[in-house]
């Protein structure tokens, strides 16, 4: 059996291909995640007139390797009075569901793990499991601060999942398909952020809140909760919670690119995969920007933003989109 036959055999088995796609996504996330931690710290240093990491490697680029070694070599502490099994399982549930969500991301027209019919619905479903993992972490820690952080996280995620889904549904109504590949292919002539400005703003705010980035990071506000739901974790389990957070962020920036900025659509002279990765990283940096530019809201303000502003706006956006689609405005897509 030569390599081509082996590849075709693997390609024909959906289970095997899905596992390989998830692994590739994991490797991608670890490399880009490590790099993006460095980019975030340098970027933060730039915004706050500091230097950021400088010691390890050129310009401190190997800082995340040093952090990783520190995390691996630390003791894996489990709180003795907590719920040990639940505590140990929580980071694994968090990371594995997010990686399963990543296996349906199309990097290019051909490089796609699984082009399932339910596409983006599967992604939202996998996002909706992460509050359970966060609750498991908070409950298993037997710590007031982590439980409070977990509850805030769940309230925030539940209230921002609805505007997020509704703004995605507006795009889906325009395209007429849930498959992410077809959504990207429909953006041949014009990228959807121009057709869906209101939906794009709602989506951007909601993805900020979903990923728990700073204007909405009430769940782990250091000054009052000492770090939120993962405060009792140490060693590699803490590393896994951090990785989960970064996968959330990377998936969010990928979604921004895929739904509103034309995915792998390019201006030529580079392969589509490279364009997709470049666009994703630009979106990532922009998502990180707000962390150092905008102060944190209070928890009641966050919930208010979710239910009183974003939800009506997203419903309005969906209504306008539906009306325009039924009048035949987007029949050329």
């Amino acid at each position: 059996m030569n390599l081509v036959e082996l590849f075709n055999y693997i390609r024909s088995d959906p289970l095997l291909w899905g596992i390989i796609a998830a692994t590739v996504f994991l490797v991608y996330v670890f490399s880009i995640g490590g790099l993006s931690i460095w980019i975030e710290r340098k970027w933060a240093g730039l915004l706050q007139s500091r230097l950021g990491p400088t010691r390890v490697g050129p310009f401190g680029i190997l800082q995340f390797v040093a952090d990783l070694i520190k995390l691996v070599s630390k003791e894996d502490f489990v709180p003795p009075d907590g719920d040990k099994k639940v505590f140990k399982l929580a980071p694994i549930v968090l990371v594995s569901t997010l990686i399963a969500a990543g296996s349906i991301i199309p990097f290019s027209p051909s490089l796609i793990g699984s082009n399932v019919n339910v596409g983006i619905l599967f992604l939202i479903a996998m996002f909706s499991i992460s509050p359970i993992a966060v609750f498991m972490a908070g409950w298993g820690s037997n710590n007031k601060f982590s439980l409070l952080g977990a509850l805030r996280n769940i309230g925030q995620m539940l209230s921002f999942e609805i505007p997020l889904s509704l703004s995605i549904v507006a795009v889906v109504v325009m395209v007429g398909s849930l498959r992410i590949k077809e959504i990207v292919q429909a953006q041949d002539q014009i990228w959807f952020f121009a057709l869906q400005p209101l939906g794009f703003v709602v989506f951007l705010l909601a993805i900020h809140a979903e990923a728990g980035r700073t204007p909405f990071d009430m769940q782990e506000s250091e000054q009052e909760l000492m770090g939120g739901w993962n405060v009792e974790y140490s060693g590699m389990r803490f590393g896994l919670t951090m990785v989960g957070e970064y996968i959330h962020l990377i998936l969010g920036s990928m979604l921004v690119v895929l739904l509103y900025f034309g995915g792998w659509k390019s201006f030529g002279f580079l392969p589509p995969v490279i364009w997709f990765i470049i666009k994703t990283n630009i979106a990532l940096v922009i998502l990180m920007w707000s962390r150092w530019a905008i102060p944190r809201f209070r928890i009641d303000q966050i919930i208010d933003i979710g239910w009183k502003y974003l939800l009506p706006l997203s419903i309005l956006n969906l209504l306008i989109t539906g009306a325009l689609v039924s009048m035949g405005w987007f029949s050329w897509i």
Partner: peptide, 10 residues
């Protein structure tokens, strides 16, 4: 998965 685990379970 979306409704049962994501909404009812939570």
């Amino acid at each position: 998965i979306l409704i049962y685990t994501g909404a009812v379970g939570v």
